[in-house]
Design a protein around this nucleic acid. Sequence first.
RNA 1: GCGGAGUUGGUGAAGUGGUUAACACGCCGGAUUGUGGCUCCGGUAUGCAAGGGUUCGAUCCCCUUAUUCCGCCCCA
Length: 419
Amino acid sequence: MIQKPKGTYDGYGEFITKYEYIKRIFNDLCNEYNINYIDTPIFESSELYHRGVGETTDIVSKETYDFKDRGDRDMTLRPEGTAGIVRSVIENKLYINLPLKLWYEGPMFRYERPQSGRYRQFRQAGVEVFGDPTPLMDANLISLMVKFYQRIGLKGIKVRINSIGNKESRESYRDALLKHFKPHLKDLCEDCNNRFEKNPLRILDCKVDSNKECMKNVPKIVDYLDESSKKHFEDVLKYLDLMEIEYVIDNNLVRGLDYYTDTVFEVEANIEGFGSQNVIGAGGRYNNLVEYMGGPSVPAVGFAFGIERIINALEAEDIKVIDDKGIDAYILPVSENEMDYSLTLASFLRDNAFKVDMDYTNKTMKAKFKEADRYNAKFIVIIGEEEIKKDILTIKDNLTKEEVKVERDNLLDYLDINI
RNA sequence: GCGGAGUUGGUGAAGUGGUUAACACGCCGGAUUGUGGCUCCGGUAUGCAAGGGUUCGAUCCCCUUAUUCCGCCCCA
């Protein structure tokens, strides 16, 4: 038997119900915030991600799905959404009308060891805003995220926020960290020794070393921010307070993608028993990326969230999603003789915008009723010899189990009134 | 990429080196051939992730592979 590739899943049933629910709420919310939908390719030239996401990131250095197409071009399945959108903004000169507010949703691909909440093909949705450098917009997007989680019904969420400043302040902070950790290298774990070489900022959120002595008096990045970065960060917090959004400042929050500047934030599922993949949304500002990718100097800010993880969170909090997929009417021909009549009746009702299904296979009466239940039918229209002869239909309300006789000519009116 | 634990019908699962692989739910059929969801009766894995090995005999022991889950790494 051929089975699905590692780290993928088939979406159906319950999952689809939840997925569509999440997507609809996000779509509505983006409309309310005046954000337009954008759809970019699922694969792009490999170079885009090497430049856009960053050569040194794990995502690009060891997690991409790379392939050569038949024209010998290097292609990569997108591991995240931002780079492709930045490319599209530049290529289509969408920056002529700023600010530009875009949202997207779709599959992303990363070659990782799967776990619950971590797949090789997974879905992200997100927002990117170009051409607005203000701290208002940072706060605005965080408010959008928080509203989103509230609207889908999640309670246990926690917003963490930090500023990593501009490139210069980050570099001087990096130097300070190197100086600080150098004498303690032998106390730190193996991973942190590697991080010391590669990306010292990441030592800060190490789980193994977090309680060690040298972590307590570690330099803080806020002390290395320049005046404008400091002001920007303070203003973001001020606006969050103004909108009464709860957050915690986490000086150790550093993100794994190279393009961030100033504000970075994460939303965590803070739910009892939730797995270790508990970051359900994250984002930040990236003021240099558009220019770095060959466009004009346009500031930007954005976020993304992982749909599967949000679905996990909904399940962890036991939040039920209302499934209104039930049909309006199930047509039940009593015998083979009523099939023709039933088929045309079903077609007629569908033309009048009712959701209708029927028994096509002439199963037993018991099975027909069971099928009507399975489809969650509001009404069962029973068609037998008598009904056809008199042109009067028997309609059973599947909730109250009451049965009425309705003339065929009055059927539409009856259904309109009662559904 | 590293370490650990799993994989038994449609589902939840029990089980054993030896003739029929429990039990429950679901599904199908009958009691009840035009009214179901209750009850009763019957059916429902030629099969225990795949391949190989040990054995007279393997779902069970051994090896390999696939895959799921947990932790690390990383991240949504």
